[in-house]
Design a protein around this nucleic acid. Structure first.
Length: 741
DNA sequence: AACCGTACTTAGTAACCTGTGA
DNA sequence: TCACAGGTTACTAAGTACGGTT
């Protein structure tokens, strides 16, 4: 919460990313941090754009993508998978997919074997069922090991565990559905068979114990069950900043009163007179108790959880068991909108089975609703991917139960997304020329569209759909920018035609940036703001619908958000090329990877609140580094000493020679450790306010990373954790080291 | 063209888990 | 052995996109 406040002043982090500090350079850490803090400085790359000077060094991501295209590297190689999602020039998205399925090259790779494959998959499905059982036993064994034998773990034990791990991995590999080798379904068909157990519902409300009381105006009040439950929602949040906010309190109180009985409503008229102290204390005690549980208690809980996952966490989709992403119905509570959300604090109601629509195959076993209940509806729509849905009461938005990111349904879509982005790469020059021309159009709409596109392309802004006022926080994207969100500077800090952006974007994250733009854009902007008030739309003739319609006419499947994907991925690829050397050691390579990733995160404005413990942990690390340094210098003197001694004693003294070698090795080890820590410190410092996860998960074509790993001899595990590897299994499987985005 | 409903991706934070070093 | 930092996962809000209706 309140992140926009944190961002004040220094604004958006901007990684200057001039030539990277040598890793061995101790000040690297500091320099990295400064780059971030200095932030909102005009980008160097932008100067470049305008004076057209290509330069090797600057890698400020902000503007790189725009000009890079013209200067860019070798043409894309026609990869085998290139054509899989190749879109037809004409026709809409849906149709396109159909066309591909009929004639796309995907057939060539997938169909010949498809019959045997289907068979294989059935076998695999069988195996999967088996596996589940074995997996469980495996887990158990693993779990028991450390408890029982930890103290006397023999080599065999360790070796055994290692083997077990390898075996497990192999098994998993065996049972994985290699959907990317199969043909795609026709049209909008998402599945042919879908069976699941429905969503899992949160537990019923447990009334307060008799010794916990709510007080109003100093007097003990026994609340009705409904009112009590909602009171507890508030009490549980008392430590949170939310409960101090006026809007939150007002919304809460209004909704709480709706849950009260008539008598309660008459009595309780002022939130300030409510004393939730005992409820709050009870909640805190519960949290503490959970922390203080014994191992056994925790294990029992874990097993119970696992049971729920086993029952509700998976579905059967076209012969394959797939993990469900969110199989739990969202429990009731108080709405936590982000930013200045007008509805924060409102009561998010408990969802009943009667509110839930189930989607599954006609042939499938229909999930059984909780006893005494029935579903709102059961439908069989295989053109959508959700298994269940309900309408939430705050914004009347529909919520869905859908599959996990490692599923076919999500993976295939993801793959398609990157293929569209790659397609943009091949025509981005034309599109840039086009909107360059459009900047001079006689039509106001066209010019607005061109400027908006310029922003979206150059700055990776979001499209900016219009949103209903008062329904959510006041945030904007490109098309919904208002005059008040930009300031035009003819001259600023040595640059001409600078646009200063300052607005709240998605999740009320502040976007602050000063960007030199080309003259035509600047003139247009001056025109757009003429005779307008601060609250007026900058692009008053434009919306995302019109923009996307135009884009889809330029390239099938092209929408505003494709530019974000494209620019993110192309930036990663370029940065990796520039930053990494084959001769670097692994920590250095990984730092470079993270820096490339970071460049993208900065481009996309992916921020995070600095971790609460940041300064502390930074200091700790520094202390460790200092200690290591001391140890190193000590080691060095010892080495010197030993050498000297060896010299005087002569080479015949093998004992002394051995000592020298040992000292040498110790020094070397020490140096390596030191380097690793320093690299870590640099990385962490540079990452203070930047979140890498979002771009890694949503914007960076995983094939770029996989190819890089192969080229650099870095194990994939170093950059993707388990769930990321699962999600990107398709890319890890199919990507060769010569992949080019 | 304004508006609405639907479906899906993208996003940051909080809770949880685990490996590690005192 | 235990605390705790840091990584991972769960959660759910907040976007984008698009088709249909008025």
């Amino acid at each position: 919460m309140g992140r926009e406040k944190d961002a004040k002043g220094d604004g958006k982090a901007k990684h200057k990313a001039t030539k990277l500090k040598k890793l061995s350079d101790n000040e690297g850490a500091v320099a990295g941090g400064d780059a971030i803090k200095n932030s909102a400085k005009t980008t160097k790359a932008a100067e470049r754009t305008e004076n057209g000077k290509p330069h090797k060094k600057a890698k400020t991501p902000k503007t790189e993508p725009l000009e890079s295209a013209s200067s860019t590297r070798e043409p894309v190689k026609p990869e085998p998978e290139d054509g899989v999602f190749a879109a037809k020039k004409t026709g809409l998205k849906r149709k396109r997919i159909k066309d591909e399925a009929m004639e796309g090259p995907s057939r060539s790779s997938a169909s010949p074997a498809s019959k045997t494959k289907n068979k294989r998959h059935e076998e695999e499905a069988q195996k999967m069922k088996l596996k589940k059982r074995t997996e469980k036993t495996v887990k158990k064994e693993e779990g028991e090991h450390p408890v029982s034998k930890k103290t006397k773990r023999t080599k065999e034990d360790i070796e055994g565990a290692r083997q077990l791990k390898i075996k497990k991995k192999e098994e998993e590999e065996q049972s994985r559905w290699r959907w990317w080798e199969e043909e795609k379904y026709e049209d909008g068909v998402k599945w042919r068979f879908l069976e699941h157990n429905g969503p899992s519902f949160p537990p019923e409300y447990q009334p307060l114990p008799n010794n916990v009381h709510f007080f109003y105006n100093g007097k003990k009040v026994k609340l009705s069950l409904a009112a009590e439950e909602v009171a507890l929602f508030f009490a549980q949040m008392l430590d949170h900043e939310y409960t101090t906010k006026k809007v939150f309190r007002e919304n809460y109180f209004k909704d709480w009163r709706k849950e009260m009985t008539h008598e309660e409503r008459l009595l309780i008229t002022d939130l300030d007179k409510c004393d939730f102290g005992e409820l709050h204390a009870m909640h805190k005690a519960k949290v503490e108790a959970r922390k203080g549980q014994t191992k056994e208690e925790k294990l029992v809980l874990k097993e119970a959880n696992q049971k729920v996952v086993d029952e509700y966490g998976y579905c059967l989709l076209d012969h394959h068991k797939e993990r469900i992403g969110n199989f739990k119905i969202e429990p009731p509570g108080l709405f936590r909108g982000r930013g200045e959300h007008p509805k924060q604090g409102m009561l998010k109601k408990r969802i009943q089975p009667e509110d839930v629509i189930i989607n599954c195959s006609k042939e499938a076993r229909i999930p059984v609703p909780p006893t005494g209940h029935r579903w709102k509806e059961v439908r069989h729509d295989n053109t959508v991917t959700w298994l269940a849905s309900w309408t939430e009461n705050i914004q009347s938005a529909i919520k869905y139960i859908m599959l996990n990111a490692n599923s076919k349904l999500k993976g295939e879509k993801d793959w398609e997304k990157y293929e569209i982005a790659r397609k943009l790469k091949s025509c981005v020059d034309d599109i840039r020329n086009q909107y360059g021309q459009d900047l001079k159009s006689r039509q106001m709409v066209t010019r607005q569209r061109a400027v908006a596109l310029y922003f979206i392309d150059k700055l990776a802004l979001r499209a900016g759909n219009e949103k209903e006022e008062g329904e959510s926080a006041d945030t904007v994207g490109c098309c919904s920018l208002r005059v008040e969100h930009i300031t035009l500077h003819e001259k600023l800090e040595g640059n001409e035609c600078v646009v200063e952006f300052d607005f709240l974007g998605k999740d009320s994250i502040r976007y602050y940036n000063k960007v030199p733009v080309i003259k035509k854009v600047f003139k247009n902007l001056q025109l757009f703001v003429e005779n307008k008030g601060p609250g007026d739309d900058l692009f008053d003739r434009l919306n995302t619908g019109m923009l996307n319609k135009h884009l889809s006419s330029l390239m099938a499947g092209l929408t505003a958000k494709v530019f974000r994907t494209y620019n993110a991925s192309i930036t990663l690829q370029q940065q990796l090329k520039q930053l990494t050397n084959k001769s670097d050691n692994e920590p250095e390579k990984l730092l470079s990877y993270n820096r490339a990733n970071r460049a993208v995160a900065i481009l996309c404005n992916h921020q995070r609140a600095p971790p609460k413990t940041f300064d502390q942990s930074m200091a700790n690390l520094q202390a460790k580094i200092d200690a290591r340094k001391e140890a190193l210098s000590l080691g060095e003197t010892e080495l010197k000493q030993a050498k000297k001694e060896a010299k005087t004693r002569g080479s015949s003294d093998t004992k002394q020679q051995i000592l020298v070698e040992r000292k040498k090795a110790a020094v070397k080890r020490c140096e390596e450790q030191l380097l690793k820590m320093e690299v870590q410190a640099t990385d962490r410092e540079e990452n203070k306010q930047i979140a890498l996860g979002t771009s890694k998960l949503n914007y960076l074509d995983p094939r770029i990373s996989v190819a890089w790993c192969k080229n650099m001899d870095v194990p994939i595990e170093k950059i993707y954790n388990k769930s990321q590897r699962d999600k990107f299994a398709w890319a890890i499987d199919m990507t060769e080291d010569d992949f080019e985005f």
